[in-house]
């Protein structure tokens, strides 16, 4: 579905990504794990077009999307939940969800989808009219995910969904990620919380200073002594 081929990204003189190659198949949950500054977020931003690439290609559903601007990539079916949630603070929950459907014109279907989001996140229904900035961190994460789903993405990019959340909420968010995946959306996930990420992912890539150092089925990686030592706190 999505293929990255020898992707290079520089921030000025700093080489953020060095020849990254990876792929995501339809229906999968793929996790990118690694330490701070390993390049996880940069990969997502390069896919969604926020960060320009130096060389290499990103192919989505057979189309080269490397040089396409971000707003066009959304229309191709890739939706990103940015790091730190980035909900529209001064808009209500409902307005945030409507913004998520910005590229769509089918009013009735949008309303249906908003209802679906409320079924998935009942907390958001309770806070429908509230400004997004008054929501708790967990609720904002739910809103950011709901908003990303409103564009009916084929591929959902999640950047650190567990950031700054209480452990119970993290478990809840990850359960919802699995639900979203089960209902037919492919997911690419960036996580610091490697334990959690590996527990729900099909496959995973381990990144170190801009390079893929390990890859394979998530269960295999979770059992790998090197990974356990470096990322799972053993």
């Amino acid at each position: 579905m999505l293929t990255l081929d020898k992707l290079y990204v520089n921030y000025g003189a700093i080489k953020a990504l060095k020849s990254i190659s990876c792929h995501v198949e339809e229906g999968e949950i793929v996790a990118l794990i690694g330490a701070n500054g390993a390049g996880k977020t940069t990969i997502l931003n390069a896919i969604s077009g926020i960060v320009p690439t130096l060389s290499g290609t990103v192919t989505f559903l057979g189309e080269n999307i490397t040089a396409i601007p971000p707003h066009e990539i959304v229309k191709r079916g890739i939706s990103q939940v940015p790091e730190g949630r980035r909900v529209f603070a001064n808009m209500s929950v409902l307005e945030n969800l409507e913004m998520g459907a910005y590229i769509r014109n089918d009013k009735d279907a949008i309303l249906e989808d908003i209802e679906k989001v409320f079924v998935r996140f009942p907390r958001l229904l309770e806070r429908k009219k509230q400004l997004a900035k008054t929501l708790s961190g967990g609720e904002q994460q739910m809103l950011a995910m709901g908003r990303a789903l409103m564009s009916r993405p084929k591929l959902l990019l999640l950047d650190e969904p567990s950031m700054g959340l209480a452990p119970m909420l993290v478990a809840q968010i990850f359960a919802i990620i699995q639900e979203i995946n089960a209902s037919g959306t492919t997911i690419m996930l960036v996580e610091q919380n490697a334990n959690m990420a590996l527990s729900i992912a099909n496959r995973a890539y381990v990144l170190e200073t801009g390079e893929v150092v390990l890859q394979g089925p998530a269960a295999e990686l979770a059992a790998n002594p090197d990974v356990r030592k470096a990322y799972l706190g053993e």
């Binding site: 926020i50 959304v74 939706s79 940015p82 980035r86 808009m91 908003r147 564009s151």
Partner: peptide, 10 residues
């Protein structure tokens, strides 16, 4: 509100 988020909305 947020340029990056707006861009991500298409």
């Amino acid at each position: 509100g947020d340029e990056i988020a707006a861009e991500a909305m298409g």
